[in-house]
Structures are given as structure tokens and as C-alpha cells.
Amino acid sequence: MAKRIEVKDLDIYYDKFLAVQGVSMTIEPRSVTALIGPSGCGKSTFLRSLNRMHELVPHARVEGTVVMDDQDLYGPNVDPVGVRRQIGMVFQRPNPFPTMSIYDNVAAGLRLNNARISKSDLDALVERSLRAANLWSEVKDRLNKPGSGLSGGQQQRLCIARAIAVQPDVLLMDEPCSALDPISTQAIEDLINELKTEYTIVIVTHNMQQAARVSDTTGFFNLQGVGQPGQLVEIDDTTKIFSTPSNQATEDYISGRFG
């Protein structure tokens, strides 16, 4: 299921403004890639460009290629809806659909993709997704209650269950723990460790300890200056980035000298 993504010379524009410039990286399957960097350096923009969510902003566009499975995601005939179906996303703040039950939240994507799915298949897939999100034991008795009644950490795991229910190849996480308390954060980090055996995961985080804990590869984004586009400064094994980074700016950032 997990797939490799190769990004080559990616420039991301909002209208005429160049937000991110010249990013090239390879995202390995069944691994966790963390993106770190100071605020406004374009790491979230870059993340959203991987499943074409950034296109929701009017006049946003990219140049360069994002290749998954020998297919350029920005090639002609590629449907953004199909891209998002295969590259799932988890957001900064938990966002279960407030009008849907826990069950319906997880089933939402499945119902879209397969209108004729049988009730028993759906039950099985919902259960599997909730188990995979380490949430099953906590919610199995109240599947028909609204998802908004859960705690923040549970809601976020519900959103992860919703994202993996459609069996994507890649999971993007945009600061998934920034709105959570330390215990919930721990639960999500454990979950990420389990999920990486099956998915390619890209996570944006502000928390360098988190990047060090959960990721195999870390990419550091930075701005050259105010008004300049964000750039990928360096990407390497997480252990190497946090011990002997090859770039001075990376070292300054991870040692807490700025950002």
C-alpha cells in the first residue's frame, strides 16, 4: 500500500507570490518524514501541495513535479479528488463532522467511494480503522454518539481513523498534536509509530522533540529572509539532522538559537 513520493524542483505560488521555492526530496514508503522549520517557512504549504489541498486557495499553483507511483500528481488528467483519496490528511485541530456519529465519521469516505458497500463490510472496515487508530476499545460502545463528544485526543484519533478508512497510500499530518495535551500527544505519537508499518507518513511539526521521537527522516525548511520564499535547507536521517547537521542554519534552529 505505502508508496514513494518524489518531489522535484517544486515551486508553490499564491498568485504571483512565490511561497516555496525549489523543493526536491524523496519520501520513502513505510517511513515517517518530519518537516520542521520556523513559522511561515512554507512547510505546511508544501505539505498541502502533496495532496493538492493548497489549490483551495484561489490562484494557488505549483511548478515542478510530484511523482508517486510513476505518476506526476500535477500531470494532465490527474483528478485532485483522486489524489486526495490516495493521500489522506490529518489537520492541526481535530475536525470530526459535528453532525455525524463516530461511526458515520469513519464511514464517510467509504460511503463516498463505494455507494453499494454492504452493511457488514462497512462495519468491518469501520472497526478495523478504529482499531488501527487505537480508538476501538474507547468508543465501541458509543459508535452512534456524535464525534464531537469525544476528548480532543480521541477526536484527533477519530480523524486519523477517518483518514485511513479509505485505505490511502500516504498520510499527511499537519501539526496533528499542536492542539492536544501531552498525554494525548503521546497516544498519537505511539499511533504514528504503529501506522508507519503500513503507510507512508509525512508530518509537519513545530516540536523538535516530536520530530526526533517519531520520524526516520527530517527535512528542515527555512526562509532566506523576510518576503523571500521558503526553501528546503536540508533533509537527512533524523539521527543525523539532530546530531551532526551539515548546514549551519539547521544546527542553529535545532539547538534553539532561533525560530
Partner: peptide, 26 residues
């Protein structure tokens, strides 16, 4: 499988329908 203690076997290979990544668009 990331599930810790599966209580019963679920058919993991069952394909679910979906939009292929690349298909013809108008």
C-alpha cells in the same frame, strides 16, 4: 497490521472501490 489484539479476522484484501489516481478527465 497495526491492530494490537484483533478479536476476529477481517479480510484485509477486500478491495474498496475508489477513484483511480489517474483517469481521463474532460
Amino acid at each position: 497490521m497495526p491492530t494490537s489484539t484483533p478479536e476476529r479476522d477481517i479480510d484485509l484484501e477486500s478491495p474498496i472501490g475508489g477513484i483511480p489516481l489517474v483517469h481521463q478527465t474532460l
